[in-house]
Amino acid sequence: MIWAIYFAIASLLAIGIYGVITKKNLMKIFISISIMETGVNLMLIAIGYIPGGTAPIENGDFTTYVDPLPQALVLTAIVIGVSVLALALVMVINYYEKNKTLEYRRLMKW
């Protein structure tokens, strides 16, 4: 079961990196980055999973909890992802105003 999730994580990251490299449209590039971020968030959660554990809210009925630390980290990672995405969208708007296109060809140029 956990291997299905591991497979999903690796696929999300691979799809994301493929999108960033092959796409020229800026919106698609940033969507690919969001996909990668989803993958890594899922990965943190999967690493914190303990078989049979419940959510770490202590009501007294349960004895096994999942690891709460990765969940706190994911909360941070999600907010950071959102912030970067917001700034990225604004840059894309500005880029469109200047160039009247969303094509971005300089990414792979070194």
């Binding site: 990251l13 980055i33 971020e37 890594v40 990672a77 840059m91 894309v92 880029y95 300089r106």
Partner: peptide, 20 residues
Amino acid sequence: LEGAIKYMVLGSIASVLMLV
């Protein structure tokens, strides 16, 4: 803008790799 966008794309990939 071009510089910032390039920095941003690579920086976002970097943050994902760091988290991994």
